[in-house]
Amino acid sequence: MKPFVYHQPKSIEEASVLSAKNWEEAVLFAGGTDVLGLLKDGIEEPKEVINLKGLEGLDQIDFTKGKELRIGALVKIAQIAEHPAIKQSFPALAQAAAQTASPQLRNMGTIGGNICQRPRCWYFRGDFHCLRKGGDECFAVEGENKYHCVIGGGPCYIVHPSDLTVVLQALGAKVTIVWKGGQKTVPTSQFFVLPEEDLYRENILKPGEIVTHIHIPVPDSKMKSGYLKFKERDVWDFAVVSVAASVRIANGRIESGRIVFGGVAPKPWEEETLNRELKGLPLKDADLQKLKALALKEAEPLEQNAYKIPLARNLMLSLLKELMPIIPN
């Protein structure tokens, strides 16, 4: 690891000031599970590392009944997986947390770091001067692209690696971003960006901006949510494909719902057409099959990743069947 200057600010303001340079200059560091990997491999070689662990008040989970769940950015993944109220009211989130990485990494990694982590594309992580690192080629396009995106890509074909983001978006979560002199709260659907919007970053954060909290509205009793993650190997692996859904069920129909896919696109992937189709859908197998044909309809797989499309569709169906009593044909 290249030596760096180390800061451990005591206030968000101080952290914001320290990090308000450019990305090459200073990097934010929370649990460090992702950043350390980047530093060790020389993918990022910042002059300064700003450790956020000293910031007060960001390590809390606050649950206001009937209102919202607020998770501080420094809350560990393991705390989310084990939190009784989250397990009770947001099972999809607890499941996603429990399926992230490995036990040790869940004890180390934070939710803030998880949603801000960099892509796992092996060209990005490897010794390749790729587009995302300022080069002029995406090596995945003509290369080994089994794990790359099938939709939303171009000119770079990463997938967003986080499990939690997929669920957060399905649950309608918002992210609070703070900087010196200001703050805003945005839905996750507006937090992540595609390569065509920003080739070098995966989200809207600017230098000096820090994610402090995640807010999740508390669902009513008719809402059900779930998460299915498909990975080749049960531990460590990021999702090959994952799907999160939250659906409101009333009178034998889906009243409304959101389906979000992970592992298929450079950001958590949500399709308006699919969500619209969910509205008023009867809980019948035949109707679900229609959904299947609709999901990822615009996908354009690369040479080695076409399997992700049937995989995502099958997972979606399995998840919906888990969440709802389906009437067979």
Binding site: Y6, Q8, G32, T33, L36, G37, N51, K53, A78, P103, Q104, L105, N107, M108
Partner: peptide
Amino acid sequence: LLDGKAVYSCHILALD
């Protein structure tokens, strides 16, 4: 173990 919890000591800064 770091404060009783399992962590990867290779992947954590000593200062943490």
